[in-house]
Design a protein around this nucleic acid. Structure first.
Length: 1021
RNA sequence: GCGGGAGUGCCGGAGCGGUCAAACGGGAUAGGCUAAGGACCUAUUGGCUUAGUGCCUGCGCAGGUUCGAUUCCUGCCCCCCGCACCA
């Protein structure tokens, strides 16, 4: 995909430029909007017209060849342009069927216990733009194909749409343009919705949801109260991400590379009191259940990584005789601890240094490092000594404590035991502050030997003699490249062997060079890989695309810490163990001593839901002067978002609404103030899929029975960008509601499909990049059916694609062709059983393809099938109907139009017809082989013709064959009767076919004897 | 650094152990139908060779496994995407 952008202009491109662009093209490009009124041939009434520019523009009918000059009154315009009238009026067909579907409620569904359900869902959009671009069109088309397919399979398909309509952009628009967020939002929704309708998406519009309306957000508040009741919602002071530009806190999932996901500003860390949901209570289940999901490995990996479980031990260090637990995954390195590092944001840091001479240093340092997440790739390690010491519980050594910028405040306990010899960060810090480095792990004496180019056989034999090298395979030929991978059990002896026999050590002590056997480029990587190369020089080596690389960082102890496992040293009674054993033994020891506790830790944090913004769900909490924070009572919900706010100032606009702010305490009826934080948008999207199941309910968020009927979502479709945010929260929410008895599902989304991104000019197509191609532009020109078909045809739905209009014409032509086929005379073809075979095979293949999201391949097969049907003398109606059915997934409007055409005359809607079933008995592979044989024959004839022609030119003669004679084996005669027709069509010459044993055959050159089974002989006369 | 994906013709993209590399679409070239083409039809589109044949080259580069590799493995190159100071 990216390739297109990288590659230079092709040769073809430059050649093209040599040829002058035809005038007509240029004109058309300049004035694509000008159309001609004439739609029907005045003579025969057909619509297959062509128009030609020129001094006197004319119209020509392709059917009856009638030609006439065009409307004199439009002559001026026509002089500029000749533009074909589309013979199909897409727009009115689209409107017609969209209206019909809506009127007949074709896509509305009810729970029906007798029918199997299927829930298809696309991630609901955030209504920030007022149009749809090709990226959207592609996404919605994917979902619609699935919905239509499952519907035709007989499932009760729930396929809803709604809008995630709370959020900052609306508020920003209000600030900038002075429009109230509500108006802005509702306008956008109306526009987007109209475009979605124009796409012919088969949503059940009766279930529409907009999250900014009180009908919806009331339940957000209700859930909040439930969570609060069950201890799952709480308020705490914590170091949180603060976006200075959006003026709000952000959840961890909304910070990308240290920047705000919306505005890209540097995010600061602030100590603030905020509302959280206890996602960490569910960390283990969220992690464990990932394996149950039919999601892509990538998304699963991202989630696992995000939850980030690590196994380790809490070890009690003592500071001022108080216990300071510290988490580590590497207790085997505890004897190597040479300093402690505490986070700058640690709440107890200042307390620790209070009234000491170090207090000032620490304070200055905190100020200096500004406490914001930095975007540098790897932060320069900085820190300051706190003057305090911690006691190592195993050695009783006094360990100095440093305040350091690389320690995260809210992971584990905010303080780490630093082992510079075996942790890269600790190492860097120690180097900088001249803290001792104590090695407690030694690299293991084992490795792998990789030998490029073969050694002499006898040398390998010698290696083997040592017994340490197990050579798996040696290339027999000297001089050829061979790779030998051999585990080396005893490095020291092996190295000695190498030194003695093959190599000598380089001066810096790192690499090994072989000079003993006539080569200069032999290198050894101790502890990692041994790469021995000899015979031949460096240049030759490069020729084979191999480069020599000395991983200096791995060799030079001065740069890198040894972080792998190995043999324990300098650790008293634990010496000699390997790391894995030592981890267990030391953990046992610590636990026995009461100095430690094995535990698991997660990277996942609690979900920060407070936002200091206006356009969101108010948090239903009241601060009473006497009672403190009190939840609003259920019956007072919803806490309405006031509309009389001022967006001009800085800060949260909610603070400007007095009516909202001032209230009474639900408990003591005294004076109280409302919470002005609102909930982040992820709250809205964490349960919207449940609301769809019962969207009109005014009594509760949803009826359990209904949700249990529809949930879980069978197929979720959406971008991979939500892998950690929305998809984790929604899973969390589902699990909590399950535990509250509100539904039965464990997981919200059984299957997840991540569609690819649509790029343009090398960037993701989006409003913010300004590189959008809108639905309007394309559908006006080609109709939405073409747009949908093209987008799904041009590449697999999960892969990224670069937007191009190249090829869209082809799709348009194809649709037109299928449409015109309906007028063909219906009847039985001679090749009926062959058609049936292809028909059933096609259905079988397409069904498989659709099941596996290979829409592009399914479309290809539909096209092939259509071509085949079109080639036949008569229209095979049955086959054609199934063609229309399958095509209707992609092009619902035109298919509906055909379905109801008087010639075809089907009842009901094709959209609610049933998916064709393949009859395997009718699939006959022989036909396919015969088709191939026919193709070969046609090919052969053409090949001969070509050769003859070339000969003519070369030898300046003029032999032009006029007739083709084909000689087939007698029993193959019926088969090749059709082939003869194909040859006729292909060559435009007369064809006569004989059986080889036909005595009356015309065969002057006795070619007939060349005929073989499946391969007739040919003679050109 | 870690994780995921990818590299196929002029282009977009199929194929993912053999039956066939290049389906399908686009582009280009030639021809037909035409007074006129943007419709439609036909052929060609790696090289050599040939009355329909045969051979070679070839799926980022270099090796390996296999009777056989575009497909599996190893190393390297390049590109894209995501995460990243998680102790």
């Amino acid at each position: 995909m990216k390739k297109t952008m990288v590659k230079k202009e092709s040769k073809m491109g430059t050649e093209k430029n040599k040829k002058p662009i035809k005038k007509i093209n240029a004109v058309r490009q300049q004035n694509p909007e000008i159309k001609v009124k004439q739609k029907f041939c005045p003579k025969c009434g057909c619509t297959d017209l062509q128009f030609f520019a020129g001094e006197a523009p004319i119209m020509r009918c392709n059917n009856c060849k009638y030609t006439s000059p065009l409307f004199p009154e439009r002559e001026i315009e026509l002089k500029k342009i000749a533009y074909p009238i589309d013979t199909i009026d897409f727009l009115s067909i689209e409107n017609k069927w969209q209206e019909a579907w809506e009127k007949e409620r074709v896509f509305q569904v009810k729970e029906d216990k007798k029918k199997k359900k299927y829930y298809v869902l696309e991630m609901f959009p955030y209504p920030s733009a007022s149009y749809l671009h090709m990226g959207h069109v592609r996404n919605y088309s994917i979902g619609d194909v699935i919905a239509r397919y499952q519907r035709m399979q007989g499932f009760n398909v729930l396929y809803p749409m709604g809008y995630d309509s709370f959020g900052l952009p609306a508020e920003n628009a209000a600030k900038k343009e002075g429009i109230h967020p509500k108006i802005y939002t509702e306008r956008s929704i109306a526009q987007i919705m109209s475009y979605q309708k124009k796409l012919g998406l088969s949503y059940d519009w009766s279930r529409i949801i907009t999250t900014h309306t009180p009908d919806y957000y009331k339940w957000n508040q209700w859930f909040f109260l439930k969570f609060f009741e069950h201890g799952l919602a709480y308020k705490k002071q914590a170091p949180v991400n603060w976006c200075p530009s959006c003026k709000t806190v952000l959840a961890n999932e909304e910070v990308i590379e240290g920047k705000c996901w919306r505005c890209d500003s540097q995010v600061d860390i602030k100590q603030l009191e905020q509302w959280f949901f206890k996602t960490t209570d569910y960390a283990e289940e969220l992690l464990k259940d990932i394996d149950k999901l039919d999601w892509s490995d990538k998304v699963k990996a991202i989630q696992k990584n995000w939850i980030g479980k690590s196994k380790g031990i809490m070890i009690n260090f003592k500071v001022d005789n108080k216990e300071w637990p510290v988490f580590t995954t590497r207790p085997d390195t505890i004897y190597g601890v040479t300093f402690m590092a505490i986070s700058l944001q640690h709440p107890k840091l200042l307390e620790m240094v209070k009234d000491t001479k170090y207090e000032k240093d620490v304070q200055t340092f905190i100020k200096k490092s500004q406490a914001h997440k930095d975007d540098v790739e790897w932060l320069e390690k900085e820190g300051v000594f706190t003057g305090k010491y911690a006691v190592n519980p195993v050695t009783n050594e006094k360990i100095p404590i440093y305040a350091a910028n690389f320690v995260i405040a809210d992971y584990a306990t905010g303080m780490v035991m630093a082992v510079p010899a075996h942790d890269q960060r600790d190492f860097e810090f120690a180097k900088k502050f001249k803290i001792p480095i104590k090695e407690v792990i030694q690299p293991k004496n084992a490795g792998y030997m990789v030998i490029e180019k073969s050694l002499p056989k006898e040398k390998f034999a010698e290696l083997n003699k040592y017994g340490q090298v197990n050579i798996e395979k040696i290339d027999k030929d000297w001089g050829k490249f061979a790779r030998v991978i051999a585990p080396v059990e005893n490095e020291n002896q092996f190295v000695k062997f190498l030194e003695k026999n093959l190599l000598s050590r380089s001066e810096d002590g790192g690499a090994w060079y072989s000079d003993s056997i006539n080569t200069t480029n032999t290198i050894v990587f101790p502890n990692k890989h041994f790469v021995i190369k000899n015979q031949g020089d460096y240049e030759e080596y490069l020729k084979y695309g191999l480069k020599l690389k000395i991983p200096k960082k791995q060799l030079e102890k001065n740069i890198k810490a040894f972080t792998e496992s190995g043999k324990i040293i300098n650790s008293r009674s634990f010496d000699g163990l390997n790391s894995a054993e030592a981890i267990e033994k030391i953990s046992d020891f610590l636990e026995k001593q009461g100095q430690g506790k094995r535990t698991f830790l997660y990277k996942l944090r609690d979900w920060l839901i407070s936002r200091q913004r206006y356009w969101g769900t108010p948090i239903p909490i009241v601060y009473c002067e006497k009672c403190g924070p009190v939840p609003v009572s259920e019956k007072d919900l919803p806490v309405l978002l006031p509309e009389d706010v001022d967006f001009k100032g800085a800060g949260n606009p909610l603070l400007t609404s007095k009516d909202f702010l001032e209230t009474t305490c639900p408990r003591c009826k005294g004076k109280a103030k409302r919470e002005t934080d609102t909930m982040g948008g992820f709250m809205d999207s964490s349960w919207y899929f449940l609301r769809y199941c019962d969207a009109q309910n005014t009594e509760k968020p949803f009826e359990k029975e209904k949700v249990d009927y529809w949930m879980p979502v069978n197929q979720y479709v959406g971008g991979i960008e939500h892998a950690v945010g929305h998809l984790i929260y929604a899973r969390f929410f589902t699990k909590v509601l399950r535990d509250l008895g509100m539904l039965s599902a464990d997981e919200p989304f059984t299957k997840l499909f991540n569609q690819g991104v649509v790029y343009k000019d090398g960037k993701k197509m989006s409003k913010s990049y300004g590189n959008t191609v809108t639905q309007d532009e394309i559908s006006k020109k080609y109709g939405v059916d073409t747009a949908r078909l093209f987008l799904l045809f041009v590449s697999a739905p999960q892969s990224d694609m670069e937007w191009t209009t190249q090829g869209i014409e082809g799709m348009s032509k194809f649709i037109k062709k299928v449409y015109l086929m309906k007028d063909k005379e219906q009847g039985n073809n001679k090749t009926q059983d062959r058609i049936e075979s292809m028909h059933n095979k096609t259905i079988q293949d397409i069904t498989e393809d659709i099941k596996h999201f290979r829409f592009n391949l399914a479309i290809i097969k539909i096209m092939k099938f259509a071509d085949y049907l079109d080639e036949q003398e008569f229209l095979s109606k049955e086959a054609y109907l199934d063609l229309i059915k399958t095509l209707s997934l992609f092009c619902p409007h035109i298919c509906e139009e055909i379905w109801h055409d008087p010639e075809i005359n089907q009842k009901g809607f094709v959209s609610s017809s049933s998916w064709p079933k393949a009859d395997e008995k009718k699939i006959n592979q022989i036909f396919e082989e015969q088709e191939k044989a026919m193709d070969v024959l046609v090919n052969d004839v053409n090949n001969i013709l070509r050769i003859v022609k070339e000969k003519n030119i070369k030898e300046k003669q003029n032999i032009t064959p006029k007739k083709i004679f084909i000689y087939v084996l007698p029993k193959e005669l019926p088969l090749f009767q059709d082939a003869a027709r194909a040859v006729e069509k292909s060559t435009g010459l007369g064809v006569q076919i004989f059986a080889v044993n036909d005595k009356s055959k015309y065969d002057p050159q006795f070619k007939a004897s060349k005929a073989k089974p499946g391969k007739p002989a040919i003679y050109l006369d």
